[in-house]
């Protein structure tokens, strides 16, 4: 294991976000705060309670998940796409690093950034609504696994994309809709039975449900199923990355 190389890549990636602190930290925190103001306070005041939890508190885990998914994907995809686009990737590919070390650097940094943002949002939320965390350890597990999985997904997108349009396509057309329809703002038992069944095909439902369970002990699906699903996504993402490296896809002709 070439720890020095991984650390260098990780630090450089983290430094890149610090250079663009407005875009990387302020803007996502601001947009999440707006959700709290609009959905939590303005609209939420008209909604009494969901499963015994005030609406404002109910949406906290969902909003953190929303932030975690979108930021993980965009950070990681941009992180690997940009050096490919600018050509600086030559240096990483010619360094004495294994592929998994390269992934550890890029994906580790992307996941760390979205984790930091998630925690900032968690703290910001406290300014708007009171909430409790029943299972803090499980909350941390869900946070870390989700950040890692979706950063891997972002890495895959950043390798697959051959232009800026494709880079935006998946986050915009797939991740955001799935998150909005994944029970961020509602409990799926508020839906008609048919749509409940459809919703269960949405992977984000399991993430939000499990994460919400770690806060309030209430969930749409069993937390164990949630945990199982996220492990499954993680395994799937790792297999795709392994395939990319085995074939040299878009990295090494």
């Amino acid at each position: 294991m070439n720890l020095e190389s991984v650390k260098t890549l990780y630090r450089a990636e983290m430094a890149r976000s610090l250079r663009t602190v407005l875009q990387s930290i302020v803007s996502p925190v601001l947009s999440t705060s707006l959700y709290f103001v609009v959905f939590g306070s303005a609209i939420g005041s008209r909604i009494s309670e969901v499963n015994g939890v005030s609406y404002g508190a109910f949406i906290v885990p969902g909003l953190i998940m929303l932030m975690l998914l979108t930021q993980s994907v965009s950070n990681a995809s941009f992180g690997i796409f940009f050096p490919r686009f600018s050509g600086t990737i030559y240096e990483v590919l010619s360094a004495p690093m294994s592929y998994w070390e390269v992934v550890a650097g890029y994906v580790g940094a992307a996941a760390s950034k979205s984790l930091i943002l998630g925690i900032i949002v968690l703290i910001t939320a406290r300014l708007f609504v009171p909430y409790s965390i029943e299972h803090p350890l499980m909350m941390a597990v869900f946070l870390v696994l989700t950040a890692a999985t979706f950063s891997l997904l972002g890495f895959i997108i950043g390798i697959w994309a051959d232009g800026f349009e494709k880079l935006q396509l998946v986050p915009l057309l797939v991740i955001t809709p799935l998150t909005f329809l994944g029970g961020t703002f509602y409990s799926i038992d508020m839906l008609p039975p048919f749509w409940q069944a459809v919703t269960l095909a949405n992977p984000v439902v399991y993430l939000v449900s499990g994460f919400r369970w770690s806060f309030y002990g209430i969930s749409d699906v069993s937390p164990l199923i949630s945990l199982g699903m996220i492990m499954l996504f993680l395994a799937a993402a790792l297999s795709v990355v392994a395939w990319i490296f085995r074939t040299g896809y878009r990295l090494k002709p």
């Binding site: 020095e4 190389s5 600018s86 050509g87 030559y90 240096e91 990483v92 004495p96 690093m97």
Partner: peptide
Amino acid sequence: LVPQELTNDAFIRVWDTVSFSRGLFGKP
């Protein structure tokens, strides 16, 4: 390796990018 194209990260400083290269190759 010095590549043919002038590829670089436009906003990074000379000292930082050269130090980065050293670290990337696993040198303290």
